[in-house]
Amino acid sequence: MTIGEQIGQVIISGLTMGSIYAIIGIGLAVTYNVTRIFNFCQGEFVMIGGMLSASFYSLGLSLPLSIGLAIGITAIIGAAIWLLFLNRPFARHSSLVTLILITVALSIVVSGGVYIGWGTPFRELPSFANISPIRLGEMIIDPQVPWIWGGLLALVVGLTFLFDHTLLGKGLRACSEQPIGARLTGINPRSMAFFSFILASLTGSIAGVLVIPLTMTSFGVGLGYSIKGLLAAMVGGITKIHGVIVGGMILGLVESLAGGFISSTYMDAAGLAVLIILLLYRPEGILRN
């Protein structure tokens, strides 16, 4: 492989994981912007999406059906979580910190529950397109990669459409930018919070099913995805979607560069270290407004 192809391979791989982190981060950003809650369950949504799709597929269901069911069920779980724990009457008196801690607690419960149900073995899913790896010169690209990029693109397009052209989307935007004004115009912040949570579980599970052909999944991966998603969103600037995407790509690229040119054992560590430094350097996000 020429050095150019090596770099190309690394960049492609970086942009791929970066897309996954971006998708996870978008879910976190939407929830945060609308409700000011940092949803610690996001990583669990990713994990559940992957686990469910793998399980359905291994039970014999077709790939599209497994994926669709997985995403749908995760959305229901997300809705249930919000309705039961983050909404009145239970959470009426709770402060923001408490609500965040509730999501932390729920992530403990969810991963424990998955452990009970599925045990330790890693689960996997085949690539969406049943073709052999794509070859570009000496570079090898996993067939899942275009699906992941496509997934991010579709998500961004879909969200842009949602936010700009639908009433629901505008309601979400209103809540994030001007909560009191939104209330005055009849938008119900609780409904908006509810929908933002469903969006979060949807994006999380989509990321989960997209990534599982590449990395497999198990009950304990949720925390890692939550942390990486949070880091990516915050480093890029959690208030704007393009910031989140930038943050995710940075994380993906740093991991990939470390993996390609230093050693694959230090991939995660390098990514985390660099992003921690970036966040300390610019807590509001590196994209200055």
Partner: peptide, 12 residues
């Protein structure tokens, strides 16, 4: 698994 579930629920 169960200890996480129970502990988490108590926390909630």
């Amino acid at each position: 698994g169960w200890e996480s579930v129970i502990f988490g629920m108590i926390l909630v």
